[in-house]
């Protein structure tokens, strides 16, 4: 089997090896551009400190925890989540009811065709 052939999707094609080559070329170009920059990095200076809007960074807990991520996304979709999350009640008979509900709907559809 020729592994270099591309994966035909019917409308397009995908060849990981071509992609990798393009990726490598892009990386080389990026590194070239980067190497023309000035090297002014100094260890143990202000450059290495986290920047929090110009405020004094806290000494220990400056890792942003998972609970604080995507706050805006969750706030924007509050209406959706307030409906969706309570459906996951955690009560096992509810789970069974959902399954029987789908069976009932499918029986109606299946018997009508």
């Amino acid at each position: 089997m020729d592994v270099t052939t591309t994966l035909e999707t019917g409308y397009g094609a995908w060849s990981p090896l071509v992609w990798l080559a393009a990726f490598a070329v892009t990386m080389v170009i990026a590194l070239l551009i980067r190497s023309t920059g000035e090297s002014r990095y100094k260890k143990d200076s202000n450059q290495t400190k986290p920047f929090i809007s110009g405020n004094e960074a806290p000494q220990d807990a400056y890792h942003i925890r998972a609970g604080n991520l995507y706050w805006g996304y969750l706030e924007a979709l509050k209406g959706y989540y307030q409906k969706l999350v309570p459906l996951h009640t955690g009560i096992m008979t509810d789970y069974v009811l959902w399954m029987f509900g789908v069976v009932a709907i499918m029986l109606l559809i299946g018997l009508s065709i």
Partner: peptide, 21 residues
């Protein structure tokens, strides 16, 4: 009926919404 009684529980076992809980 047999089809529904086979397909729905199997869909449940593979975790399809709304039987994914």
């Amino acid at each position: 009926i047999a089809f529904v009684l086979l397909a729905v529980p199997l869909a449940m076992k593979c975790g399809a919404v709304p039987m994914h809980f």
